[in-house]
Amino acid sequence: MESKQQLMHSLRTAYSITLPLLEDLQDAPMTPPTAHGGNHPTWLAGHLAHSVGLLVWEIMQGKPNPLADWNELFQGGSQPQSDGAVYPAYEEILSQFKSLHEEAFALLETLTEEQLDQPSKNPPPNFEEVFGTWRQCFGAMALHLTNHRGQAAVCRTALGREPLLV
Rank of each mutant, 00 (worst) to 15 (best):
A68T: 14
P32I: 10
T18L: 07
N126Q: 08
L159G: 02
E72V: 13
P29K: 05
L159I: 14
A68S: 10
C137D: 06
P80G: 02
F74Q: 03
P41Q: 03
N122S: 11
L22W: 05
Q75S: 12
Y15W: 09
A104W: 00
F131L: 13
N147V: 05
A89K: 03
G139V: 03
K4R: 14
V166W: 13
H148A: 11
A49V: 14
E23C: 06
Q115N: 02
G77Y: 04
W57F: 12
A106E: 12
A140G: 06
A35I: 04
L48W: 08
R161H: 02
L25V: 09
E23F: 02
F105N: 02
S78K: 11
G132V: 11
G76T: 07
R161P: 00
Q61V: 01
S10R: 10
Q61C: 08
P119T: 04
L55I: 12
H36T: 13
D83Q: 09
S82Y: 02
G62N: 05
A45P: 06
W43V: 01
L7P: 12
Q96A: 15
N39W: 03
E109A: 15
L164G: 06
L143Q: 14
T31A: 07
L19F: 02
A45R: 01
I59F: 00
T133E: 01
P163S: 09
L73T: 02
Q6K: 03
A140F: 15
S82C: 09
L55C: 08
